[in-house]
Write a protein that binds this DNA or RNA. Sequence first.
DNA 1: CAATCATTGTACCGATCGGTACAATGGAAG
DNA 2: CTTCCATTGTACCGATCGGTACAATGATTG
Lengths: 186, 186
Amino acid sequence: MKTVYERADIVPLLAEIFRELGYEGTSLSRITERTGIGKGSLYHFFPGGKAEMAAAVLAEVDAWFEQAIYQPLGKGDAHQAIAAMWTDVNDYFRSGRRICLVGAFALDETRERFAAAIGDYFIRWIDAVRSALVRAGCSEEEALALAEEGVAGIQGALVLSRALDDRAVFTRSVETLAKRLDAAMR
Amino acid sequence: MKTVYERADIVPLLAEIFRELGYEGTSLSRITERTGIGKGSLYHFFPGGKAEMAAAVLAEVDAWFEQAIYQPLGKGDAHQAIAAMWTDVNDYFRSGRRICLVGAFALDETRERFAAAIGDYFIRWIDAVRSALVRAGCSEEEALALAEEGVAGIQGALVLSRALDDRAVFTRSVETLAKRLDAAMR
DNA sequence: CAATCATTGTACCGATCGGTACAATGGAAG
DNA sequence: CTTCCATTGTACCGATCGGTACAATGATTG
């Protein structure tokens, strides 16, 4: 009896582990312990080891946001796209029970290792929101400021709701942010 | 030749290391490497090892916020106290170059270990801001919402400014938050 | 059926982990 | 000067770290 994986099956499992334990806190033995996947398989799919695993996870996160968040914001009705973003984000982060891996990596020295991917993620997210706001009638400066505030607000809400162990904090924060951006559109 | 420390000298050094490397990323050997303090001294002052070191750091952070942030918010002119908070926070976090250790700990499994201290930190911070806002004329609900938004906003700004490696993001975010709270006071 | 080859489990590597034991050190107090 | 004791450096512990080597496995292909 032998379970056979492919790379695409493993990445989401790794994602959850890196999310919960952080980059340094994630060890190969804990990956094996939680997933049943041995070192043989892990190094077969990720010859670069832990760093390549984390990079693959970041790439998958990026791909998900690209199709689920950034692209919808770039076309169609801006009001609707932004409204959809809030609900998608609330689902994705499971109302604050799931953290943002990219944000978490940004906080400690892990940032140095993945600086490019981390920077890109936030730049593109903010830019997508900004462009939607401009299409909705905001001035350039106001749109940028609100986009930054929205993305930062989500990150802050994640920290706070986890710190207080209170999902309501996240949902409430997202609602407040949604109202603020909504009020700026016309 | 022998350098002699006392506990109070060591804690701030540990704080910076935990901030930069995270709890899991901080090893005893890296502490020694960065500070010159050997294991003998570390275990003399912190018999509980790494966990006690981190707890001591959290306690010191708490003490600092208590005297520099929470207490001023509880008495005197509310406008002035809140204005002072923004500048003190901006200095403390070095315009986003220095992260919030408590927020960082909240994001990964480190939270479990220090859940009580982490929860307290944010509860007390939010409550201090809330009470100042109430004194400044806000309704109870509005004050709580704004206080949460302010504290979460700071955390988000730290994540974002580090991710983008851009201090201006932090300063700008804090200014925006300051204006929002200011507008709600009368 | 035979051959191939992607995938996996196991055994191992040196380095580092957090932690302990303890003797040497040296400043402070009598 | 001597005693004391807080503080420190060093040597060591078993466990775990990330990573490598390689033979066994077994599904796919011809």
